[in-house]
Nucleic acid binder design. Structure first.
Length: 585
RNA sequence: GCGCCCGUAGCUCAGCUGGAUAGAGCGUCGGCCUCCGGAGCCGAAGGUCAGAGGUUCGAAUCCUCUCGGGCGCGCCA
């Protein structure tokens, strides 16, 4: 149950009733009516803009409409107050009973609280990571990985049918370079002195075992053969080795994709030819000459006729090339086929998670998707900005020299999967992120992961304490469902309940915007409300202690609140893929 | 030169898709430990939302321009 959408429905009903009574005109557009928590809590629990939105089309003053609505709202039993404020807002205050009902619902539904059918089972494809199979994942990949994974979980939570997908770029020149690198390591494994790895190949140490494995499997077989003989097989072998490496890296973050789609297989199945034939038939492909890019002209630029896609018909800035000068397809061409393929597989909502360096590619991909699905699918590309790795504010340099970069695995080993995942989600995806290692090792308020986990651990702690001090209380969730929640009358207690009650709404808006970071801020808010309540009982007002051996019924109600807090935090962390901790001594 | 993203407190960032007096953490200053985990909490000071126009009942949010920063700009992915 989303409290806010429920009350929105009530308002819309009220408007329709007034219309049928003749107090308001018929067929008003109610779509812009919203019900939100007011910015200032002193204004109440819910606020609606209904009167202001309707004023113009009804040809009436906002306050007159508000007046009529308020009369109806006041008659509803859970609404303890309804007032008109400012230019025509209606502020409503809910009776405590309504809040106890939400709390009871949390205890009843557990982590399913907040789940919804907003997505109505629509098929969403989230493509993320998709790193080239040319080496282990590094820190730059970590953010998109975590982001995509959390977004997928979030969409699942609100009722989408989600597929997590990885696109393997195994068809370009880069995997040929990979094969040559493997071949050198293969010779090396046979005792040959290979010297410096040439420019353009992959010099990383991680290629050494690939060469050794090849030598072990194939013996001397390739030593005296020319490149065209060994390249396809060694390429295949190397790609598999790299994908195993990458899958391994992903598993350190507990990331598991449903599908790995190979670019090469798309090409081999003729899907690129098919889709381009289709575009050709629709007159969206032509041969032309592009203007040179201004300002930064490549040295070797020369005007040349190319096979171009009419991207400008779909809001892109220029038409885009589909063929390289050697006659093979560009990455873009196979990517068009790939996105078409996703659509053919039944996905109408496509999400791609890319790194910042691909930002310039978004328009053409959206254009191509529009073209190739004839507006049947919508592509949303989420760009993840760079992560700066810091140690006490000092940038940790990732030296690419000798393939010596900081790997994702290094980072996870250093701070743990949960920390990596949470921190990566504490910023909006398109804002740069500072990841300070010293910070996340710290156990304090400044470390958001700790702060949230601490609140969760405290919830458990209070249960353990209760079992000791008031043994007659059963702390199982089912037992706490029977607590008399109306005993929770302190302002801080109600404030915490109200915060928890916003969880379904937070989930829905985060899912709609494709912005999982909102959950991180929500969890911090919950933790803050809980810590505040805790300290209030601990320091200022002992009567607010959660465990009171002199008041078992009250204690039961408070444990119910603590359990609900724990449930909501745990379900938020679950979407992030972070294990909630029960103890942190 | 063009495109995309960004610009909010001294610092790091939120701001719920256009709502009311713009919020939080850090830092600064001042408080709270006989008792559920002080790894925490409470309070104060701190703002021309980069700037200028526009749209409307109403703009940090939408549009235009200017300034500043990041990323990208045919045959790499």
């Amino acid at each position: 149950m989303n409290l806010f959408s429920e009350y929105r429905n009530r308002i819309v009903d009220a408007v329709e009733e007034l219309a049928s009574n003749g107090d308001l005109p018929h067929e008003l557009d109610t779509s812009r009516i919203s019900v939100e928590p007011p910015r200032d809590a002193s204004h109440g629990d819910l606020a609606t803009n209904a009167a202001m939105v309707l004023a113009k089309q009804a040809g009436m003053k906002p306050r007159d409409i508000a007046e009529m609505l308020v009369t109806g709202l006041r008659a509803q039993s859970e609404i303890s107050a309804a007032e008109i404020a400012g230019p025509g807002f209606i502020n409503m205050r809910l009776d405590s009973v309504a809040w106890y009902a939400v709390l009871a619902e949390i205890l009843r539904r557990g982590q399913a609280f907040g789940a919804s059918d907003m997505g109505t089972g629509r098929k969403v494809n989230v493509e993320y990571v998709s790193a080239n199979p040319t080496g282990p994942l590094h820190i730059g990949h970590a953010r998109g990985t975590v982001f995509g994974d959390a977004l997928a979980a979030l969409l699942e939570k609100v009722g989408y049918d989600v597929c997590r997908e990885y696109y393997i770029n195994d068809a370009g020149a880069q995997v040929d370079a990979l094969a040559r690198s493997a071949y050198l390591r293969y010779r090396e494994a046979h005792g040959e002195e290979i010297g410096e790895i040439p420019e353009g190949l992959y010099p990383g140490e991680y290629m050494v075992p690939v060469g050794q494995a090849l030598a072990k499997r194939d013996g001397m077989k390739w030593l005296d053969e020319p490149e065209h003989v060994w390249l396809p097989e060694i390429r295949e072998f190397s790609i598999n080795a790299m994908m195993n490496l990458i899958r391994d890296d992903l598993s350190t973050l507990d990331v598991r994709h449903d599908i790995f789609t190979s670019e090469r297989s798309l090409v081999e199945m003729g899907k690129v030819d098919d889709v381009l034939e289709n575009l050709e038939g629709r007159g969206l492909i032509y041969t032309g000459v592009l203007e040179p890019p201004k300002g930064k002209k490549p040295d070797d630029w020369e005007a040349r006729p190319q096979t171009l896609f009419r991207a400008t018909d779909f809001k892109d800035d220029v038409d885009r090339p589909l063929k390289k000068s050697d006659g093979s397809w560009t990455y873009f061409a196979s990517d068009i086929a790939y996105h078409r393929d996703k659509y053919v597989r039944g996905f109408t909502d496509l999400i791609d998670v890319w790194g910042a360096d691909h930002g310039g590619y978004v328009k053409r991909m959206v254009a191509a998707t529009d073209a190739v699905t004839e507006q049947g699918a919508r592509l949303d590309v989420k760009i993840c900005q760079i992560v700066r790795l810091l140690e006490n504010g000092e940038q940790v340099r990732m030296s690419k020299r000798a393939g010596n970069f900081v790997t994702l695995r290094d980072l996870v080993d250093e701070v743990g999967s949960g920390v990596v995942r949470f921190i990566m989600l504490t910023r909006k995806n398109d804002a740069p992120l500072d990841f300070d290692l010293a910070f996340v090792r710290e156990q304090s308020r400044e470390n958001p992961v700790f702060y949230v986990q601490y609140a969760h651990a405290r919830c458990h702690s209070v249960m353990r304490m209760a079992a000791d001090e008031v043994p007659e209380i059963d702390t199982a969730t089912e037992a706490l469902q029977g607590a008399d929640l109306s005993q929770l009358t302190d302002e801080a207690e109600l404030a915490l309940i109200k915060t928890l009650a916003a969880w379904p709404r937070t989930l829905e808006s985060a899912a709609e915007a494709h912005e999982p970071h909102r959950l991180a801020f929500f969890l911090l808010e919950v933790a803050s409300a809980f810590h505040g309540l805790w300290t209030k009982g601990s320091r200022e007002n002992p009567s607010l202690r959660m465990v009171r051996n002199d008041a078992p019924e009250l204690t039961r109600a408070r444990l119910g609140l603590a359990r609900a807090t724990q449930i909501v935090i745990a379900s938020g962390l679950a979407i992030f893929g972070v294990e909630p901790v029960e103890e942190m001594r």
